[in-house]
Design a protein around this nucleic acid. Structure first.
Lengths: 320, 320
DNA sequence: TTTGATCTGGCAACCGTTTGCAAGGGAGGG
DNA sequence: CCCTCCCTTGCAAACGGTTGCCAGATCAAA
């Protein structure tokens, strides 16, 4: 149905290889011929078949982007940034969602192999070992996870957690609950690591939890019961669920308990009280990841992006 | 690097065509041979190259999904549903975001052509005419738009708008503002159509607007000034922006103005006041669209899904 | 034993593009 | 005027599969 390279070649009495070169190596063809070919191609509405091209060149000009959960408002800005950046380099991004399931994640990676030139693996739930094994088949850039020898875009969660803890300590909080995320989350481990080193604070850990509103809602009673006056949540969604759960128990935020999230997503800004949070540089991360994938011949450059504490309304002085 | 069909064939002393058939037409090969091939394939980690397969069969087992804005929380559930449904049919969904820009939308469709077996076009901003033209190159299923002869999944916006208007009328509201969406939105037109026919109501139209929180924020002053006691917003994001804008002007919702949105997204549920809204069947739509694309030989079946009014806290009695 | 139907698996062409190789032609230098 | 050299283009072999066609083998029925 659609015009192929042959149709174009026939249309202007030239060999297919000339047509091919007109597009992929224009300097090798005579300007006059080139414009004839271009005209014919335009006339027939010819567009090179990328799949066929991929077959010989081994390059698809596609990249995969795997995220744990598109519904989490944290991801869309990152996805958009990656797509925009990729488009500027004549690449396409195919987004897929794992539903937080490592098995689905593995399956998706496997099917992406050979369909894309590389995969952006965002907040993976797979083990390092498994990721390393899969990396033999397709180049990766990992976002939010440090794996030796593999290019990565990291967000400085440790720094953010420290900022958050300092902020809470400054408000007079001593006993602080740490509501972590799912198993396999590097971010969650980083947070716990920083917290464990915190001086003079009395920390209570809760986890693992689903990284969603539901997860926050579910731990709310335990958190309320543990006697902490402040909570550091795995992400904003969890923080929001927590606030929801606490307020259902007539516990006011920030009057009785202060809550800090991570990410800085839209619903947090819209919420009452507006959520205090550690902003993650999602847009920059999406862009960087694309660049890293395209430039890295596979060597493991690592970029770490800074985070920032955004103080809004969900944190306040500790009651004395 | 990766094993090809030839490697497998060599490994078990059989012709490539036999290996090929083992996967694509198992009944044509002897069970004994088949298991030998399967074993060898498994051993070598062989996975058929989908691009190569697409070259001969013309089927890629991929489908595209184009949305106006992944950041809008309305889309992710639809996307997830589509992906899940597609995965069950051995298909993959490549998601792309147009940033509400018709030109980007067209470009994306053009590049999807030949890379996918069909495209799910969700809330397009392109003109009907353009969509019809592009449909010559790749099968479409359109979501949230009615185009003659083209398969479509529609949400019953008219019904939802009617429900919402009745609800407001029942609460004693007479003068109602209608805050519409962007140009080219079918949904927006449907809403306006219903509103125009409403009996006994005094309607004030505002539009076009960006379908985002910012859009709502921007019209808030005008809406406040127009003397309406209730607002029907294009979607929840606009409604949320509106509430934000109104409360910045010290206008209480629902005490002084009632607000209804469309979609039923998460931030609306989390908001204070919780948003009254017309729920759109996004999950069902995603699923249906995939099925329609896969079954339709291109003929234009149309599915219309019902909407439902969810009354929460952002609507109340009109002040007398 | 012959016949024919049914399985099974090899052969080779083809899908649309790229690319190394080589040939023809024109131009410039000697 | 001849010899290089470069520019331009054609030729053909890949890339990794699929599939129509054909031939040999197997087996049951006659």
């Amino acid at each position: 149905m659609a015009a192929t390279i042959k149709d174009v070649a026939r249309a202007c009495g030239v060999h297919v290889s000339t047509v091919s070169r007109t597009f992929s190596a224009p300097h090798l063809v005579n300007p006059a011929t080139r414009s004839r070919v271009l005209a014919a191609a335009d006339d027939l509405g010819y567009r090179p078949n990328r799949a066929a091209r991929a077959l010989t060149t081994g390059r698809t000009f596609n990249m995969g982007l795997i995220v744990a959960d598109i519904s989490n408002p944290f991801f869309p800005p990152l996805i958009k940034a990656a797509q925009a950046q990729a488009r500027g380099r004549d690449y396409h991004v195919f987004v897929a969602d794992t539903d937080e399931d490592p098995r689905v994640e593995e399956e998706l990676i496997r099917t992406f192999t050979k369909q894309v030139d590389g995969v952006l693996l965002c907040s993976p739930r797979l083990s390092n070992k498994m990721i390393e094994r899969l990396a033999e088949d397709v180049p990766f850039v990992v976002i939010n996870r440090r794996i030796k020898g593999m290019p990565a875009v990291l967000m400085n969660v440790a720094q953010g957690a420290k900022l958050a803890l300092d902020h809470l300590a400054g408000l007079g909080h001593r006993r602080i609950a740490l509501v972590s995320g799912p198993i396999g989350s590097w971010t969650s481990n980083e947070m716990q690591g920083v917290a464990a080193e915190a001086q003079g604070l009395d920390l209570v850990f809760f986890g693992p939890n689903q990284p969603t509103e539901a997860g926050g809602l579910a731990v709310a009673p335990e958190v309320a019961a543990c006697g902490a006056s402040a909570v550091l949540a795995y992400n904003d969604l969890v923080a929001l669920g927590l606030i929801e759960g606490l307020s259902a128990m007539e516990i006011g935020v920030p009057d009785q308990i202060s809550v800090i999230g991570f990410d800085d997503i839209l619903p947090g800004r819209l919420n009452r009280p507006k959520l205090t949070t550690v902003a993650m540089p999602a847009v920059a991360a999406g862009r960087m990841a694309v660049d890293l994938l395209l430039q890295s011949g596979g060597e493991g450059a690592t970029v770490t992006l800074d985070t920032a504490l955004i103080v809004r309304e969900s944190t306040g002085r500790a009651q004395t």
